[in-house]
């Protein structure tokens, strides 16, 4: 097992290097100077500007710059934000928990909806439940996250006044009241993402269940006298969930994209919110740092999914 994890790690590193190269090339080949506002500002004399360029290593050949840049990135040194003058690494670490909380909660909620729904709709194929579940999956999958978010705001914040419009990041959970406030303001951002996840996953679970239900081992389980409930739960579901894990890993970039939109609508102080703010203000070091962080997150979760996959399926040899 340990060797398998190491091997997967060894594959993950070139992937990260590749992604970082892509990000770097986009930046290096961009016709506009990433330090534009900084470098063309008339208040800065030419010599100072040259010094800044040199200190940023912009006078060196591209491969050298890439290796140096990557070296700093790996050590967690993302440079300094133009806007707030604080280290980008620190900004990212401050924002990361909110993003992980929203994405994590949405994933868990999505799984809790998708598994029962997918199983039910596969077991009662072509029934009313199946039609409803399939329609739910199609609708949830086709609704852009930004539209779901706005509709939720219109219904629950503007018309019903049940939930707060904007996420208030100053709420600290100390007592019952603040806990209720925190839960209330988290409901909409999490539901938007959970709906999307649940819809995607319901389709996967249903498809895998349908693939497994007619197989021989299911007939064997039935013929030895197990109740249908046991057959589905113990035999079919367990086998069906294994491929779902991989499909989940493939969906991770999507869920992070969804999180960017959600954070933006509800002003959740996460990575995505900071990313959009930095793009609008042209804060290149922060944009780069966050893009790279997303790459790391995607690769790390992909790794976790791969390891889970072999843990779940004893047929796969982890060599």
């Amino acid at each position: 097992m340990g060797r398998y994890v190491l091997r997967r790690l060894a594959i993950a590193i070139p992937t990260l290097a590749g992604i970082s190269l892509a990000i770097f090339l986009v930046l290096a080949l961009a016709p506009s100077d990433p330090m534009a506002d900084f470098a063309t500002s008339p208040e800065i004399p030419v010599e100072v500007r040259e010094n800044i360029r040199r200190s940023l290593g912009l006078d060196e050949p591209m491969p050298v710059r890439y290796v140096k840049w990557l070296g700093r990135m790996v050590q967690g040194d993302f440079g300094f934000s133009f806007a707030s003058r604080s280290p980008v690494g620190k900004l990212i670490l401050e924002r990361l928990p909110a993003t992980l909380a929203v994405v994590g909660a949405a994933y868990v909620l999505g799984i809790l909806i998708a598994i029962p729904l997918g199983v039910l709709s596969a077991v009662r194929r072509y029934s009313l439940v199946d039609h409803l579940a399939t329609t739910f999956a199609f609708v949830g999958f086709s609704l852009p996250t930004f539209f779901t978010g706005l509709v939720l705001v219109i219904v629950f914040a503007v018309n019903l006044h049940w939930l707060p419009f904007i996420y208030d990041s100053t709420v600290a959970v100390r007592d019952w009241d603040s806990l209720v406030r925190q839960v209330k303001q988290s409901i909409m951002p999490i539901s938007v993402l959970a709906l999307f996840t649940a819809a995607t996953m319901t389709r996967y679970v249903r498809a895998e269940m349908i693939e497994h239900l007619p197989q021989d081992y299911v007939r064997t389980a039935r013929s030895k006298g197990l109740s249908e409930r046991e057959v589905v739960r113990r035999h079919v579901l367990r086998n069906s969930l294994i491929p779902v894990v991989t499909l989940l890993a493939l969906g991770i970039p999507n869920i992070f994209s969804g999180a960017i939109v959600t954070e933006q609508i509800f002003s959740v102080p996460g990575l995505g919110h900071l990313l959009i703010k930095s793009i609008v203000s042209g804060d290149t070091p922060v944009v780069l740092g966050i893009t790279f962080s997303y790459a790391v997150l995607v690769v790390v979760f992909g790794l976790i999914a791969d390891v889970l996959y072999v843990l779940l399926d004893p047929r796969i040899k982890y060599t």
Partner: peptide, 22 residues
């Protein structure tokens, strides 16, 4: 496989930011 693990939306935003004006 490399492209599949790209963080698409941030990268799109980065490209738009850098190539928009030219």
């Amino acid at each position: 496989e490399l492209m599949i693990s790209m963080p698409t939306l941030p990268l799109l935003l980065l490209v738009l930011l850098l190539f928009r004006d030219p």
